[in-house]
Structure formats: C-alpha cells, structure tokens
C-alpha cells in the first residue's frame, strides 16, 4: 500500500501544484482523473518516490520512504515502477530496453531475455524485439515502455496515461493486461480519458488544480459522466 499524507509540492518557489493531498493506493486499480495540469503526473511521481514532497509523508508498506537511507531507498524503489506518459526509450534495441531493469537488478542476461520474451508475447511485440528504438512508431514505443515496466513484476505499478495514442485494438489489449493483474498488485492509472479505464477501476480520484475534489467508487463517477456528456 502507498499512502500519501498531507502532501504539498511545488516545482518552483511557492507555486504549489499539489495542495494537501491525502490518498491511499491499495490493491486493485485506482484511476486518477482530472484535466491537463491538474497535478495527476506529479501525484504519481510523488507516489513512486521520484519527487520528494515539500511537506507531507510518503509511506510505502507503512515505511516513510524519505527517512530511509540510500540503500533502503533503492530496495523500496525497486518495488515500484512508474511509466511516463511520454514513452522515453533508451538507445539500442527494443530487447535492450526491456531487459534494462532486470539487468540492473542483477539478473543474468539469459534469464532477463527469457522474461522479456514472455512479456513481449503477452503484449504482442515479439516481432519488433530486435528493432532499434528510433525506428518505432509512437504506439510501439508505448508498448515497449509498458513491457519494460511489466517485466519487472513489481508490487506497485503506476501508469501515466498508458493508453493515449494507442490504436483501439491495442488499447483493449493493454486494458486487459492491466485488469488481469488487478488482484495481485497495487495499480494506479492517471488519465484524462475515463471511458476505457473506469470499467476496470476499483477506486476513482478526481484532481483539480492540485486538490482532490472527489474520491469514490467508479459506479458514481460513471453515472456522473453519463449525466454530464
């Protein structure tokens, strides 16, 4: 479980992009909704311990992450994987990208490649494994970043708009894969497109201008959206 307590955050001076955030990300899928600039990405990056909040606490499995020493921090961070909205790939082949996280965790190359093949099959990207990353389309890039994250099989999975720019059939595939992990993992998805994600959500958080305006069951939100549109 990731718990955010009284989180305040700003990039520059006193311009807070997150104001007094209190959330629990627990088993299942939490969908974070909100318009562009509402603070979704920042929230996920705080939850994945990339950014240190100005004020407030980040608890991972009840441990205050920012009080840990360097070694423990890495151990905790390796339980979490965050996938950027913009699919950033490393130089080299698709396979190199997928195995990177495993290699730095000390896996042998053979083991890592075996795992990479398995996840690639699930995401249907086996055919592009040997391609150099600069030749990929945007949709392919996103699938590679997902594969690179999922192959790590972490307890926590934080996805920043994972279905943007995807072909509808690929979108279904991604949603299905995420849904299949629902019972074992803590998953958070930030999106401003609720239609594909709400059906798999166990909890919905609505952010606006850095504040949480609503936390509720997806049922209520769907009703609300249906009423609005």
């Amino acid at each position: 479980m990731i718990v955010l307590r009284n989180i305040w955050f700003s990039y520059v001076d006193e311009n807070y992009v997150l104001k007094n955030i209190n959330i629990e990300f627990s088993r299942g899928i939490t969908v974070v909704l909100g318009p562009n600039g509402s603070g979704k990405t920042t929230l996920l990056k705080i939850a994945s311990c990339l950014y240190k909040p100005i004020r407030g606490e980040v608890l991972i499995d009840d441990i205050n992450y920012w009080n840990l020493n360097e070694e423990e921090k890495i151990r905790f961070r390796r339980k979490i994987v965050y996938v950027h909205e913009k699919p950033i790939l490393l130089r080299g082949s698709v396979l190199d990208n997928i195995i990177y996280g495993l290699i730095i965790r000390g896996y042998s190359r053979d083991e890592a490649i075996k795992k990479a093949h398995k996840i690639s099959k699930e995401l249907n990207i086996t055919s592009i494994l040997s391609r150099r990353t600069e030749t990929l389309s945007i949709g392919e890039r996103r699938l590679v970043t997902l594969a690179r994250a999922l192959v790590l099989d972490t307890d926590y999975l934080l996805l920043d708009d994972p279905i943007a720019h995807l072909h509808p059939s690929t979108r279904e595939l991604v949603v299905d894969i995420v849904r299949s992990m629902k019972d074992e993992k803590v998953i958070a998805i930030a999106t401003h497109d609720p239609l594909s994600t709400l059906k798999i959500a166990s909890k919905v958080i609505i952010l606006d201008s850095g504040r949480i305006v609503n936390i509720s069951e997806p049922r209520n939100i769907i009703d609300k959206y249906i009423l609005e549109y």
Partner: peptide, 22 residues
C-alpha cells in the same frame, strides 16, 4: 527524462549516471 527513467526502473545513483552518460 533519463535520470527519472533510470530511477523508475530501479537504478541506483551510479547506474543512473551510467545510463545518462550512455
């Protein structure tokens, strides 16, 4: 991009620096 990416994938500081240099 790369610093954050390295951290999200579980790199320690040295590994992250290596990745950035590359």
């Amino acid at each position: 991009e790369y610093w954050e990416l390295a951290l999200t994938l579980g790199a320690d500081k040295l590994q992250a620096y290596k990745l950035i240099i590359r």
